[in-house]
Design a protein around this nucleic acid. Structure first.
Lengths: 142, 142
DNA sequence: TTGACTTCATTTCAATTGCAACGACAACTG
DNA sequence: CAGTTGTCGTTGCAATTGAAATGAAGTCAA
């Protein structure tokens, strides 16, 4: 019988690592701001590019559009973003952060950067290679 | 306002990458063997260590025990594993693969190894550093 | 031995999820 | 133009999920 060690299996190791890291970071913004992972991602995404449609976020973030639809609805009722129909294509929605949303991101960004720094430090000398590796794999996984 | 690029945020990049890779591999074993991700993991885990309890798998694989309970129930009804109460501590269940389960793993193992090889090749010269990096981060994330 | 705790697996229940349908709109095609 | 096809966001629905409750079993101290 062919032996097979799950602990040496990259997809598995990656899944474990990713789950742990995301959970750790979620422990920072979750209780403090009452955001789910999806909501945090949407806000973060909107902080870079204003006027994004749900479809665009769905593509980039690889989340189901129904999940996005519900998450953005919550964020809208909380007053963190607005949805306005795109005048050029009325099927599309333009999402933008409200003042309040921007304020929240302004608070979140330093936390994220500090966390990123921690990760970077933990990586030590392998940081660069790790970065390249993620890039390579992402590209290979198309 | 502090700029923050989600694409440079390691937790996010890792989550995307992990999801994609796992999905790719699931596309191999999923349709062919009718296994969910959790089920595949349980089988793989059992292939290395016979006689494992649900609690042990839960600890290692960092899956909720209720999820495990249901997944193992499915695998049991499919005849891929058996649950027998541990005679020394009757709260514990000993999970073991049936012949059929072992046969399935024997088919799956080469697929997993081929997939791992693909990943390894995609990593090229950064493979070693990547391995170290995962180890470092996993350790740091406690 | 009894009683108070703890641990393990299952189950219950509410919430989240993904898929498929839907309605509104846009873009072709003849 | 009318008809077909395709896209976008939302919603209905069934399945999955995680958290807490449950029941069975073990542990420990009085």
């Amino acid at each position: 019988m062919p032996t097979f060690d799950l602990d040496d299996f990259t997809p598995y190791r990656l899944a474990l690592l990713s789950a742990r890291i995301s959970r750790r970071f979620a422990a920072i913004y979750g209780p403090k701001f009452g955001l789910s992972r999806a909501e945090w991602r949407i806000l973060a995404h909107l902080s870079q590019e204003a006027e994004v449609s749900i479809r665009e976020i769905a593509r980039r973030v690889d989340m189901d559009k129904s999940k996005l639809s519900r998450a953005t609805a919550r964020l809208e009722t909380r007053g963190l973003l607005t949805k306005t129909p795109n005048p050029e294509d009325r099927r599309l929605l333009q999402l933008s952060l409200t003042e309040e949303g921007r304020a929240m991101i302004a608070e979140l960004a330093p936390l994220a950067q500090a966390f990123e720094q921690e990760v970077h430090d933990a990586l030590g000398p392998d940081a660069e290679a790790f970065d390249r590796a993620i890039r390579r794999l992402s590209a290979a996984a198309e």
